[in-house]
Design a protein around this nucleic acid. Structure first.
Ligand code: ZN
Length: 223
DNA sequence: CGAATTTGACCCGCGC
DNA sequence: GCGCGGGTCAAATTCG
């Protein structure tokens, strides 16, 4: 499906880079007269090119991340389609939100951050339950998943055909906030966490500490 | 010492 | 009705 789209995007990136190089040559042509100013401008242009190159590299990495997430998501989708014939069928009473989160090995920024994107597939009114499929690394799932809220673990179950247990969390704020959360791993791909949020918080999130979507934020800020 | 986690028991809906 | 799978409780234990 999306493989062709990916290649076209990467083509766009390289084309824009070529255009920048042409601009540089033109400026070099017009430099002859005032050498010092020309040198300054060359420095400026070099800086700019360097900046753009770094940005291009960053965007390429983000593109790779997006491609990877897309691939994982598509795999999950296919898996879901294959399982749809079985009686477990997607819960129709639940609204579904799919989030795909990957670690980004950004050496430049966000050492421990994960980027996440949301897309609402289906939404129904009554029970505010959102399901999130998250691809994350072990370090996120080691203990209580830091997603900005404070959770209290109240149970853990071993699920059939899944070597990894499922953890049950409740929001730390007493019955005033009836939000619950389940954390489990994908059946075969252990790097994929599946979070199921149930309910909505009626308070602000107490721990702003861990950034969870800085990657996307940086894209949004940039554009 | 209080709070959070662990972990087996208990409960409950569902299919046979 | 019974067994099974999944969800929750709560006593015990660990942690800060
Ligand atoms: Zn809450």
């Amino acid at each position: 499906m999306g493989s062709t789209k990916d290649s076209s995007v990467s083509l766009d990136l390289s084309i824009s880079c070529n255009n920048l190089l042409k601009h540089k040559e033109i400026r070099i042509d017009g430099m002859n007269r005032m050498e010092e100013n020309g040198v300054n401008r060359i420095c400026q242009v070099k800086e700019e090119i360097k900046r753009v190159a770094e940005e291009n590299k960053r965007l390429a990495e983000m593109l790779a991340t997006i491609c990877e997430r897309h691939r994982a998501l598509r795999a999950q989708f296919i898996d879901l389609m294959n399982n749809s014939s079985s009686p477990l069928t997607t819960k129709k009473r639940k609204s579904q939100v799919i989030v795909n989160r990957t670690e980004e090995g950004d050496h430049t920024e966000n050492p421990t951050s994960n980027c996440s994107s949301e897309q609402v597939i289906d939404q129904e009114a009554k029970p505010r339950v959102s399901k999130l499929y998250i691809r994350a690394d072990g370090r996120v799932s080691i203990t209580v998943v830091r997603d900005g809220y404070h959770w209290r673990k109240y149970g853990q179950k071993v699920i059939r055909d899944n070597p990894y247990p499922r953890a049950y969390f409740r929001c730390s704020f007493a019955p005033v906030c009836p939000v619950k959360k389940k954390v489990q791993r994908c059946t075969e791909d252990h790097s994929v966490l599946v979070l199921t949020y149930e309910g909505e918080h009626n308070h602000i999130q107490p721990s702003p500490a861990d950034p969870q979507c800085l990657g996307m934020k940086s894209i949004i800020n940039h554009k």
